[in-house]
Design a protein around this nucleic acid. Structure first.
Lengths: 127, 127
DNA sequence: GGTAGTGTGTACGACATGATACACGCCTTG
DNA sequence: CAAGGCGTGTATCATGTCGTACACACTACC
């Protein structure tokens, strides 16, 4: 039976995005070299390089959030690109699983503006 | 520097719950022995035993959902007890990260009835 | 032409995850 | 007393996660 070891990661989105964003920032600020950014997010340059090229899966949540801060991107968005959901949000859901599960499934097929309306409704507190 | 190997898992909720529920069901139906249930959810009896006693961390999502079905518990609830959130729900969130992140954080400190009201609002479609 | 900075290739590592396989000792029942 | 069902202890394993360490080749500068 064939069983490829599959050493190559493949199919990015996260890496592509980070690289593009970093190179863009770099046109304004040479501190956004691979080594520069890697230093500030406290990983090895070769690791960041591999992540950006999708040779390795996206980093841990903590590292992703440090990247987000550094490149000025929303943490939840970057986590999403990495196929993850913030553990903080997960904790909220886990405290009331049925309630949140139902809400989220209900909203799955609702358009953005409908969801946004709910957000505002809660925030502006028309309760 | 001390560095305990930490071979013992510890601190359950999931295991306790499953065991209790299984033993309860067992009073009505002898098919709910460790071996019986293990067979139906397709894991080794010794593994289920260890899980129930919290000697090992909770199983994978797929296995948890099979357990839920078998013992008649809600999947999301059982996943929550295992410290997990359904990948299906996570996928919904990942498609619109900022929108859902905002909503969930907003609802974090809202009482149950407020969240429930939203659920109904969406479902009953007063849109 | 050294030296400083750049991206990347290769090798390896520790630890977590999610289980299997098998044997052992304890009851019960025919 | 053996045969079957029971729960559990011990050993082991494949794969995934999340990186480090170091060397290499290229370019630019003065």
């Amino acid at each position: 039976m064939y069983h490829v070891v599959h050493t190559t990661y493949m199919k990015d989105e996260f890496g592509d995005y980070v690289r593009q964003r970093r190179e863009q920032l770099r046109t304004q600020d040479p501190a956004f070299s691979v080594r520069g950014l890697a230093g500030r997010i406290r990983v090895e340059p070769s690791y960041l390089s591999k992540v950006e090229r999708g040779e390795t899966p996206p980093p841990s949540e903590a590292t992703i959030l440090r990247i987000a801060r550094e490149i000025g991107e929303d943490g939840d968005v970057l986590l999403a690109l990495a196929g993850k959901v913030s553990t903080e949000l997960q904790a909220v859901i886990r405290k009331r699983p049925t309630l949140f599960a139902e809400l989220i499934r209900e909203l799955k097929d609702q358009p953005d503006h409908a969801v946004l309306r709910l957000v505002r409704e809660v925030r502006d507190g028309e309760w």
